[in-house]
Computed example of a mutant assay.
Amino acid sequence: MKAVQFLSGFALLALASLLASAYDPSPLQDICVAINDPKDGVFVNGKFCKDPKLAKAEDFFLSGLDKPGNTANRLGFSVTNANVEQIPGLNTLGISAVRIDYAPYGQNPPHTHPRATEILVVLEGTLYVGFVTSNQLNNTLIAKVLNKGDVFVFPIGMIHFQFNIGKTNAVAFASLGSQFPGVITIADTVFGADPPINPDFLGKAFQLDPNVVKDLQKKFINGN
Rank of each mutant, 00 (worst) to 15 (best):
V213H: 05
N81T: 05
T185S: 11
A72W: 00
S175T: 15
G46K: 09
G182R: 07
I221D: 01
L202F: 04
N83L: 03
D200S: 09
L15T: 13
S21H: 05
P68K: 11
Q107F: 03
F131T: 10
F154V: 08
C49Q: 14
D209A: 07
F201L: 15
L137C: 03
T140I: 09
V145E: 15
P195C: 06
A97F: 10
N91Y: 08
T168N: 13
A172H: 00
D59K: 04
P181K: 04
F77N: 01
G177Y: 04
K148T: 12
N211C: 00
G76D: 07
F43K: 14
T126H: 07
K67V: 12
H113V: 12
G182W: 03
V212T: 11
S175H: 03
N224F: 03
K218F: 07
L137Y: 12
F191D: 00
F154C: 00
A170W: 04
D37C: 08
P88D: 05
T80S: 12
V145A: 09
N36M: 07
I100H: 01
A187V: 02
T185R: 01
P68N: 12
V171G: 01
N70E: 15
T71Q: 04
A34M: 04
K47W: 09
A205E: 02
I31N: 06
V153D: 06
S134N: 13
L13N: 02
P199I: 06
V79F: 03
G203E: 11
E58N: 12
A143L: 08
D150A: 11
T185A: 07
T189N: 14
N91A: 09
K56C: 09
C32N: 15
V33T: 10
V44N: 05
D215V: 05
I87C: 03
G125R: 02
P114H: 08
L208C: 07
F152S: 05
V4E: 07
K39E: 09
R74Q: 10
